[in-house]
């Protein structure tokens, strides 16, 4: 099974780097979609099926934290796992991210192995949650 990944970063170069690192990590990526900030990511989500979002924190217009808040308020998007990626990795910053619903946190600099590990953990958790919801949905 392959997954559609949405990369959100205001730097074209960084988006290209993240895309390349995910590709060489061996993570099963079907399609890579890109957005330049949180606002654009929300627009992209209306037209695309996305399995996981990898987002920068500091971006103009809508940052990664705002994106998390917005996703939480949308029934269609609230279950899409989000991994934040940042150079700012203080314990408080990471806790804030998890409190807002982030499923993972990638510290820069990163290796392909570390990125794959977090993606697989998050996708695994997400699939388990979906299975649980499916199971709960049937009343035999």
């Amino acid at each position: 099974m392959s997954f559609n990944v949405l990369i959100v970063d205001d730097s074209n170069t960084m988006r290209a780097v993240i895309k390349k690192v995910i590709a060489i990590s061996g993570f099963k990526m079907a399609q890579c979609i890109e957005a330049g900030n949180g606002k654009k990511a929300l627009e992209v989500l209306t037209d695309n099926r996305v399995d996981v979002i990898v987002s920068d924190i500091n971006m103009p217009e809508m940052d990664g934290f705002e994106l998390l808040k917005n996703l939480k308020g949308e029934d269609l998007f609230k279950n899409i796992p989000v991994i934040l990626i940042s150079t700012e990795s203080s314990e408080k910053r990471m806790q804030d991210a998890f409190d807002l619903g982030a499923k993972g946190f990638i510290k820069k600099p990163f290796t392909p192995e570390a990125v794959k590990k977090i993606l697989n953990e998050v996708i695994g958790e997400s699939n388990e949650e979906e299975d649980r919801r499916d199971d709960e949905g049937f009343d035999f």
Binding site: S89, K92, R93, K107, P109
Partner: peptide
């Protein structure tokens, strides 16, 4: 330019995180 800026961003963020991960810095 993008690559150089990203490099300094990572160096500084990494440095501050290692110096004291309990403190919040504004970059």
């Amino acid at each position: 330019e993008d690559c150089s800026k990203e490099a300094i961003n990572m160096i500084c963020g990494n440095f501050l995180g290692k110096l004291d991960s309990t403190k919040v810095f504004k970059l």
